[in-house]
Design a protein around this nucleic acid. Structure first.
Lengths: 183, 183
DNA sequence: GTCTATAGGAGGATAGAC
DNA sequence: GTCTATCCTCCTATAGAC
């Protein structure tokens, strides 16, 4: 079970990387298995289907988002709540494989269209948006709410310089996101 | 050739729609053919390969971008140039299938990774970014440049209300983009 | 827990008739 | 220009040995 847990995690790691780089559909189980030095059949011992690999990966991310959303919904709808929400979201993405997961979803929106994990994720993104913007706010403000979230995600992949630290990334993303939701 | 041009265009239209909604890899040629009431083999009369369909669609978009980029590069690197650039870009996307094309690329980045059309498109996006932001500008400003472009694209799909006019969309996207690049 | 072998199907692409 | 028929490859998934 030590071995079990280990291989399971390694499969998830490799899958996440390949799914993000090449796309979910474009990545075959053979490819993942080869990268790990095992056969396809071995993967099926750990996961029932290909879809299952994604579902298993997304769980901890969904849990973290649920916690954050619950917090947001329990707070008064004030500017300060929104600011704090953005700060917490940015901090949240620093842990585990969380920002990698969000990138995976961003790059596989279409493939996740019919996937249960994708449905859950879309639901959460909507809930987050509801915390950041009113549904009857001006269009520009609604757009800014979406961009604020996107800014924090983009933090992890837009910069072209190789020498940017995680510290600097997070700081830049957070600053822009905060400006977008109105200071 | 009248028929020819017509069928060719219809294939492109259906392909663009399905590739965007379901994803490039998830859409089979059989599916496109069925939607048009023809067989797969008929598609192969009009296009050499599946990849070829994408390449053919992207041409007019690339041409428009090249024109815009050439204009940008011929102007002084001033704030007013950047503002005008953003305005022209927003107006540009109103024509033909242009914003649909950008949405297609956004949702199929991974699939377009190894596609010649994808390579061209990435190159142009980089060139646009270079016009909007300096490479040695603060990280936050670089991020804002990317977000400005994204804001204009997002204009066409983020709003949840069904009664938003194209006029209103464009206006909101443009306003936010202009704020992002500093008024 | 991992392997070999294989079923079963779908996809892209082509040949050749009409 | 479009069709029928078919090829070939690759994929997901399973059966059963070790």
């Amino acid at each position: 079970m030590r071995e079990n847990a280990n291989t399971r995690t390694r499969i998830q790691d490799v899958a996440l990387e390949l799914f993000t780089e090449q796309g979910y559909e474009a990545t075959s189980l053979r490819e993942i298995a080869e990268r790990l030095g095992v056969t396809k059949a071995a993967l099926y011992y750990h996961f029932k289907t290909k879809e299952d690999i994604v579902i298993s990966m997304v769980e901890s991310r969904i849990a973290a988002m649920d916690e954050l959303i619950a917090w947001g919904e329990s707070q008064p709808r004030t500017p300060e709540t929104r600011r704090e929400y953005v700060r917490r979201y940015a901090a949240d993405l620093q842990h585990g494989r969380h920002h990698e997961m969000m990138r995976f979803f961003e790059r596989n929106q279409t493939a996740m269209r019919t996937n249960p994990a994708g449905e859950k994720m879309r639901e959460r993104m909507m809930a987050m948006l509801d915390i950041l913007t009113d549904k009857d706010a001006p269009l520009a403000d609604q757009l800014k709410g979406s961009l604020a979230i996107f800014a924090i995600h983009a933090t992890w992949f837009v910069f072209r310089q190789p020498d940017v630290t995680d510290e600097q990334r997070q700081q830049a993303g957070l600053q822009v996101a905060l400006e977008l939701i109105g200071d």
